[in-house]
Design a protein around this nucleic acid. Structure first.
Lengths: 178, 178
DNA sequence: TAGTACATGTAACAGGTTACATGATTGA
DNA sequence: TCAATCATGTAACCTGTTACATGTACTA
């Protein structure tokens, strides 16, 4: 159900097509949610059925028609209601932790390669987030409330990546002693 | 598919029933994986079909029979193979970030309550992890390789909770200025 | 006598992924 | 001419959750 609200939260700002929403998840917004395009299209149909969004068909020259979705009053109300509901936190589900848990079944070098790879991926992610930070949220500018909230979602991504990189260093320090 | 390997990784250590595995996920092991009992039973049947585990029916007095699962040689090989495969990192999917993203739609007090609740849940989680750390991994004891690896999975959970708590403080500091 | 722990499961549904399908335009 | 971008979708499948179902033994 959360995907519905993630889509609504993007549509509130600006009416978009499924394609646009998918793009958004691949860019800066990706640090708070992510989905495949198939799931987005399916969910948008559902939201239309609920009357939470309305659709406008926009003809384009040389490109397929665009279905532009817009949040209805009903949809906005549903979103505001949902925000006030308490939410569970995400339990950890990390493949790398399973691998570490049974790390003694393989050569230490195999484990080391896994951790290094994991760390590299988080370093790449961090670099992306830092780039977004530098380009979209320059330090000098004073931010509006909306901008500051959005910046804080990015901060979450940055902190997340850093904590993972640190943890990998902890594991690598141990593996160096084995 | 990861659930299969999570189950195998617990069974390698000690043959267990679905019930036992579910208990394990609710305790210390929960900081690296979590699943409902229904999913565990379903997955165990699948693993049996693959020949990755074998079953022994253990009659008990006054209690239902226990199905004790044990990893086969084939299962151990599958697990070792899987460990060497590269793995993707988890994209962030956090309800609280959606709520922050559209925080301007509700009263700041509503948002504040959400963040405080989120922080409290992570503080509770951290307390649980710290307790496990104190009881299962006392500082004085020198640890075996297996123990150290397991300790590092717990460290991941601890770091995760701390980074979330810190982030909430960052958000709360901002909300205090609004 | 009510609740919890033990122990396993079915059925239905919701959420998410992978593969496949179409078809024009633009840039290398 | 080959790949990428734009733009939408179907079908099949896998993963995960919720509700329901059964039955004993022990403890408060």
């Amino acid at each position: 159900m959360s995907l519905s609200y993630a889509l609504l939260s993007l549509l509130v700002d600006c009416p978009s097509s499924g394609y646009d929403l998918n793009k958004a998840f691949e860019n800066s917004v990706g640090c708070f949610w992510k989905s495949s395009h198939q799931q987005i299209y399916r969910e948008l149909s559902k939201l239309e059925g609920l009357g939470w969004v309305s659709v406008e068909l926009i003809p384009q020259s040389g490109k397929p028609d665009k279905k532009q979705y817009r949040v209805t009053v009903k949809g906005q109300q549903a979103l505001a209601d949902w925000i006030t509901q308490p939410a569970d936190i995400n339990p950890i589900k990390e493949e790398i932790l399973i691998k570490l848990f049974v790390g003694h079944l393989v050569e230490p070098a195999v484990l080391k390669r896994q951790i290094e790879d994991h760390q590299q991926r988080h370093q790449d992610l961090l670099a992306t987030y830092k780039l977004i930070e530098a380009t979209s949220f320059p330090e000098t500018s004073s931010r509006s409330q909306v901008e500051q909230c959005r910046y804080l979602t990015l901060r979450c991504g940055i902190q997340y990546a850093i904590s993972r990189i640190d943890w990998c260093n902890e594991v690598l320090a141990y593996l160096a002693t084995v």
